[in-house]
Amino acid sequence: MGYGFRALRRRVLTPDVSETSLDKRGFHKKSPAAVELLEKVGRIFLEGYGNAVEARTVADAQARIDRIEERFRGFAYEGAGMGWAMLDGLPFGGRGRVRASLNGPGEPHNYLIYVGVGWAMARLPRFRWPSPEAFDPLLRWLVLDGYGFHQAYFRTHRYIDQQYQEERFPWPGGPAGGYANRAIDQGIGRALWFIGGTDVDVVTSIIERFAAHRRSDLYAGTGLAATYAGGVTERELEQLRERAGEHRAALAQGSAFAAEARARAGLLGEHSRLAARILCGTDAETAARVTQDVRPAHPVDGAEPAFETWRRDIGAQFVSLGGVTS
């Protein structure tokens, strides 16, 4: 496939960068610094996406992405995950790009790539969605986190103001299929960090408007975003922890996921260290290690997926360590 065609494919498939503007989206603007951070995240996401859909091979795209500054590189991999999944899902786009990335140099960024696949699913017709069996049975729920983020980010009125949920989401199906809406809520909670402009008062006020049974998952997503993206001070993180109340263990679990995603990719920065210390009650390396210490070796889904058991065990660990009050 020639370079000219690939460049055209990038132009055709890549959303306009204006779509990431907080003004365009109608999101809250806490401060100029917060606006710059969140809009840069959006620009880097699209850069990763564009590299994925233009590059000749997965390795070529990864070589470009790995030149992006460390704090934002993970967002580029998230965008690339979407790009590879779009090409895998489009007619005549070929197959196997997501798998090639997860089995290759993209493996340290697997959390972000899974999430990017969910972005693509939100834009592909359902008959072109990937098979759930193509993914790790534990981590595949992160795909729905990405789906939920996309829907909250681009369809904010329906998913946030109207709090929309499908009665039974069709992917991945199976005995634990009823859990899908909870995984989607985790992505919605992550999107709220952007929708609320990293303003803790705004974000938590939105969460508190949701039905009580949804708030734990929303706080988990918010904890992940606050730790991975940052944009707040120590005092604001303390405020977030206090506002979470009975959902502090879920908040810590999301924060620990972010610490693990950054640590395993070698991208653990000071903003993530600060967030883990406040939200998990321990240092980021320990928070990341906890996620692996309790990770099920042979996950089997029943009515409740192993992913949810894992998440609950992570939160319980931080309660038992004394860093988080239940």
Rank of each mutant, 00 (worst) to 15 (best):
G174S: 12
H150A: 14
V203D: 01
R209S: 12
S205T: 15
I188C: 02
Q151T: 06
I160Q: 03
L142D: 11
G148N: 09
L144T: 09
E167K: 15
Y179F: 15
T204I: 04
A191I: 06
V203C: 14
N181K: 13
E166R: 10
R158A: 13
R168F: 02
H157E: 10
A152H: 03
F169T: 13
S131D: 12
L139F: 15
G196M: 08
E166H: 08
L192S: 09
V200L: 12
I195S: 01
H150P: 00
I160G: 04
R155N: 14
R155V: 01
Q165E: 13
G189Y: 09
P137M: 11
A183I: 10
A134Q: 14
L138R: 13
L144V: 07
G148I: 03
Y164A: 09
N181T: 15
E133P: 00
I195R: 02
R140M: 09
W171Q: 05
H150M: 07
V143Y: 04
W193V: 07
Q151V: 05
Q163F: 01
G177L: 11
P170K: 13
S131E: 10
S205V: 03
P137H: 14
I195F: 01
P172E: 09
G187E: 01
E208V: 02
R155Q: 14
A191H: 07
W141D: 04
G177H: 11
A152R: 05
L142M: 14
A152T: 12
D136V: 04
L142S: 05
A134R: 14
W193N: 11
I184D: 00
V203L: 06
R140A: 01
A176L: 00
R158P: 00
F149I: 05
R155F: 12
V203T: 15
I207T: 05
F149E: 05
T198W: 01
V202H: 10
L144Q: 07
I195N: 01
V202F: 06
